[in-house]
Design a protein around this nucleic acid. Structure first.
Lengths: 183, 183
DNA sequence: ACCTGAACACCGTTCAAGT
DNA sequence: ACCTGAACACCGTTCAAGT
């Protein structure tokens, strides 16, 4: 524990601002949440935010990290069973974040920090999916293609309205198509 | 030809504003293109735009319509041959619009007009893809799932950087997987 | 080091006034 | 009917000034 009192206080305040931002981004969306409103709910002046975060995009990146870290932790605990059930679990874990995900895609080209976060996220997700597919018996030369297709389908299902029944049907079909593929 | 001179003039001016908006949206992106800048390049005052379009979103919807209509026209002319080649053609046709597509996904939940356009676009694309799959021998009960997966993969390839070599490989694999599926 | 009030340059949009 | 200058309410961000 290398942190002194001052550093702890700073961390604590940063976390509070982050928590407010996370709630507002998830509830109202990134675009409709102004820095001023985050500051207001955190009980500080708008420009105080900039003492803790470089800009509004840095706030989004920190929120994204917290969401992904939580999902990764819970996935190891709860997501067992067949492949399509695991994918369905992933989908539900990120469902609340679908607005944020759309924002990431729109801003990846506009903001360097979000672009970098997005590229790194896809690298991480890809290797996790490849490991998952490997464990479910998908032959190595197909793992790359299958993981990309699954990634895009997950993103598509998140971005577009779909009932959990439709999701189950589509993911079931996709997984059986990919894992029972002919040579 | 029911249009009189005045109506023609109006149409012409609308088209000019629309052309400027299209160029700027494609070049710089929706978010980085201000209504003021469109007006400037069209040679009118900023608020004149609002005589021809309800708001900035209506401008985007009109640009989207022009892009989709052109692509639909060209597709019937040029996109022949095997299924993956046709999908590759579609991808190239919308490549320049990848920034706009990301914006549509981000704003679909925020703007009623863009949300409606987006839902309608997917209905149209889905039925076109189903017809295409039917023509390529995909059995009817699979057409719905296959068309959604293909839609999501096309969107994914547009949204994320990918070389034409990667695209060819992935689409080839996907089409062969989907069309040679076991019962 | 941390926080603020005030300001800056911009944004989409509206409105009263002109023709 | 069409167009404009001026204004409105907001935005993210900066900066000089305070402690």
């Amino acid at each position: 524990m290398p942190k002194n009192k001052a550093a702890l206080d700073r961390e604590q305040k940063r976390e509070e601002i982050l928590g407010v931002a996370r709630r507002l981004f998830l509830d109202a969306g990134y675009e409709l949440t102004s820095v001023g409103r985050i500051a207001e709910q955190a009980g500080v002046a708008p420009n105080t935010i900039y003492w803790y975060f470089a800009d509004k995009d840095a706030l989004l990146v920190a929120v994204l990290d917290s969401l992904v870290n939580e999902a990764a932790r819970d996935f190891q605990k709860h997501a067992r069973g067949p492949l399509d059930a695991q994918l369905l679990w992933l989908l539900r874990a990120f469902d609340q974040a679908h607005g944020i995900i759309a924002t990431v895609h729109a801003r990846a080209a506009l903001s360097e920090s979000i672009g970098a976060w997005h590229a790194n996220f896809h690298r991480t997700l890809e290797s996790a999916l490849v490991a998952l597919l490997h464990g479910h018996g998908v032959p190595r030369p197909e793992q790359g293609h299958a993981s990309r297709v699954i990634t895009f389908v997950l993103e598509g299902l998140l971005a577009h309205p779909s009932s959990s029944k439709e999701r189950r049907a589509l993911l079931g079909w996709l997984v059986s198509t990919v894992t029972h593929r002919r040579a």
